[in-house]
Design a protein around this nucleic acid. Structure first.
Lengths: 233, 233
DNA sequence: TCGAAGATTAAGTACGACGTTTACATCACA
DNA sequence: TGTGATGTAAACGTCGTACTTAATCTTCGA
């Protein structure tokens, strides 16, 4: 992961964030702003701004006379998209994927139920379109194309739920699906049963059948969890 | 809400964050760092660090020659605890409380089910203790004491689930419960049915009955949603 | 009318200085 | 010897200024 060309701030932030979430700085360890400034060959100004952002993510704590100390994992803002990306790129991706998939299994069924009640005609159409796209790309090792439809599908469901907190999990789901496709030894083609379920969810939402939409989505989630058990024990 | 005495950075950040989330700066509006520096009588350095943090929350976007522009609501990092607090303190608290309660209704039942499987003896004991505390304070207008036990109870459940993403929602739940107690015209005493349900959840978790724990927690959630419908239409 | 070159503006970066807090060591006294 | 007050220095906090970069606006010429 090269993090070049987006300004000094972003470069330092990404590198440090990645290192911290990867556990290179164990909990409680201390770094000093001057050191960092020297190591990256940037001014203290830049480092201070980076530290402030890491502090806002609760990754570190800055105290006078002490330095910048790394906080324990339990205090991190693990819902911050950047933290999620860093951790998925790091060493404990498996555990992270599992946590996030469990979260999905809780949220998405409820979101689908709400979507069945609140989805606009446009959203219903988009849902069907993406489901069909998944069908069309479900054979012949077209995982990349399939992934695009998969992500779009779940994003529409979350948005159509009408709940802001659900909608904002679209990025998380996208990261999870991407991580699953790229970094796990996924099967050559997606599970046909899952594809069918997506089509049926689109149907249920279109027909306003909240209970069925919720149940079907729960089945998708269970499938995803089982798949994780098989591929990443 | 006076935000004094915690360093310049915190003061400016809180004030600006509160103002932005409250909608005082409409989406797309522009502020300039120099203006802010002058308004708060601080240096540009402080303002820049604040802007960087707001930027990391996706509340604003900073572009050269343009200024700091407020991003649309849909892009905010609404899971950031600070953003949640700002919004709960602001004008659209009702809508916010509803979003968060729906999120709870999706997450907590699943978390309770997992807790029934993974809870340690200590956690079971803590759960029972908090449930009993809720019973003890459920009559006689002791809402404040009740609230403490309620928060602790849900925190234990989320932690005992063993899922990091769930555990980190403890703060969110705490904010929701607190907001509900303090800012809504709550009944003089909590719903007796809800109190009983909490005791039963503690039982189910202790006995390792995942299905029952999940179902009971779902009933609690439904109750909370209905209460919201009654009190904040 | 349109396009390109230049002026303007506001953020990005850097540096140096001083202020403030506080961990830690030292010393005095009981 | 132990305990508390005191002093000191290390690290972050804040500030002001100067310079750089890039986006936008203006102007001018074809």
């Amino acid at each position: 992961m090269t993090t070049e060309g987006r300004g000094l701030h972003t470069r330092v932030l990404d590198t440090l964030g990645l290192a911290i979430t990867a556990g290179e700085y164990p909990q409680g360890s201390v770094v000093r702003t001057d050191e960092v400034a020297q190591r990256f060959d940037v001014s203290r100004t830049v480092v201070r701004e980076v530290v402030r952002v890491l502090e806002s993510m609760h990754l570190v704590e800055s105290r006078r006379r002490v330095g910048v100390t790394v906080r324990p994992t339990e205090e991190w803002n693990v819902y911050d998209p950047r933290v999620i990306r860093w951790r998925l790129a790091g060493s404990d991706r498996p555990r992270q994927l599992r946590s996030l998939t469990v979260l999905r299994s809780a949220v998405e069924p409820v979101a689908a139920g709400l979507a069945a009640r609140h989805a606009t005609p446009d959203q219903c159409a988009a849902l069907t379109e993406q489901a069909l796209g998944m069908v069309a790309t479900s054979r012949g090792r077209r995982l990349e194309e399939y992934l695009v439809h998969d992500i779009a599908f779940h994003r529409v469901v979350l948005n159509a739920s009408g709940n802001e907190m659900f909608a904002r999990l679209g990025d998380v789901v996208a990261e999870v699906l991407t991580g699953r496709t790229h970094h796990q030894v996924m099967f050559d083609d997606p599970d046909p049963a899952a594809v069918t379920l997506h089509v049926q969810v689109a149907e249920a939402v279109r027909e306003g059948d909240a209970v069925r939409a919720e149940e079907l989505t729960r089945e998708i989630a269970v499938g995803a969890l089982e798949e994780l058990d098989v591929l990443a024990p």
